[in-house]
Simulated scan of single mutants.
Amino acid sequence: MSDSGTYQRLIELLDSTATVYKVMDHEPEGTTETVSALRGHPVSEAAKCLVLIVKVDRRVSRYVLAVVPGDRRVDLGAVRALYAARYVGFCDAATAERLAQAVPGTVLPFSFDPDLELIADPEVVAQPRLYFNAARLDRSLVMSGADYAKLAQPRIERIAGPVAE
């Protein structure tokens, strides 16, 4: 699915569920800190979305879409503990793009692929306003963290590391 197809799928999902959201157009940008400045909000209100590979054992690997506040890093050790895995790391770009159905920097905090498990940190769903790139570098969405949790139905787990300094 192309990025425009992923964007359209998200908008159709939001509209069909009468979810309140706002579209924001901005200069093309995929870096959380820079796009947060363009959108005019604290980085902590952004959803940072990263695709991880979780190697449970030598034969079993899973893929996880980890969503943390924009001013935080993913705690790979916390994710490894959730799965009792032997290894957790960042997924290669081609696999991440295929599973997330978006290029890096535009990954949604939603999973439209059954092979990509969605995990969000509790601080993400607690945000009154949650900002994220909408499968496009030049467009973002903002919605409440509660509405996001209701719609995306992520597994809620503490996976954010300390605030980046």
Rank of each mutant, 00 (worst) to 15 (best):
A85P: 02
V74Q: 06
I53K: 09
A100E: 02
C49L: 05
D121N: 12
E45Y: 06
P28A: 12
V107Y: 00
L108K: 05
P69K: 08
E29W: 08
V88N: 01
I159S: 01
E29S: 13
G145N: 02
V163F: 14
P162V: 03
A134V: 14
D57E: 10
R139T: 13
C91P: 04
T6L: 09
G89K: 13
L50E: 01
D92K: 08
F110T: 02
D92H: 13
E165W: 15
D138W: 11
Q127T: 07
D113Y: 06
T34P: 00
V107W: 03
G70C: 07
E33T: 12
A100P: 02
V88F: 07
Y87P: 00
L118P: 02
R73Y: 11
F132W: 13
S144Y: 07
N133R: 09
L118M: 03
V79H: 03
M1K: 08
E123V: 04
L14W: 14
G161S: 02
V103R: 15
V107C: 04
D3V: 09
E12P: 03
A94R: 13
T106C: 08
A149G: 02
L118G: 03
P128G: 04
L130V: 05
A18V: 09
G40M: 09
E97I: 04
D138R: 07
I156T: 04
E97T: 15
S144D: 07
V64E: 00
D113G: 01
A84F: 10
R129H: 12
D3G: 13
R62E: 12
L130T: 07
A160L: 07
S4N: 06
V23K: 14
V125C: 07
P114T: 13
V124I: 15
R72C: 15
P109N: 05
L108H: 02
A146V: 10
R39V: 13
D147L: 14
V64S: 05
Y83H: 10
P162T: 14
G89T: 11
R136H: 10
V88A: 04
G89L: 01
D115G: 14
R139F: 05
L50I: 15
P128A: 12
A126W: 06
R80S: 03
S144K: 10
R39K: 10
A96Q: 03
L14M: 10
R98H: 08
R155I: 10
V23L: 11
L10S: 09
A47Y: 01
M24D: 04
P28R: 05
A120C: 09
V124L: 07
A146C: 10
A93Y: 11
V43N: 00
T34R: 15
R155F: 07
R58L: 10
T106M: 09
L50F: 00
T95I: 05
K55L: 09
A37I: 14
M1V: 06
V67Y: 03
A149N: 06
H41V: 09
V125Y: 00
V124N: 05
V163C: 10
Q101L: 05
K55A: 15
A126V: 06
S140P: 04
V88Y: 00
R72G: 12
R62S: 02
V142S: 03
H26V: 11
Y83F: 13
V56S: 07
S61K: 15
Y21D: 12
I11N: 06
P109A: 02
Y131F: 13
E117L: 08
M1E: 01
D75R: 13
L82C: 06
L141Y: 08
L65D: 00
V43Y: 08
I156C: 04
A149D: 03
A85V: 11
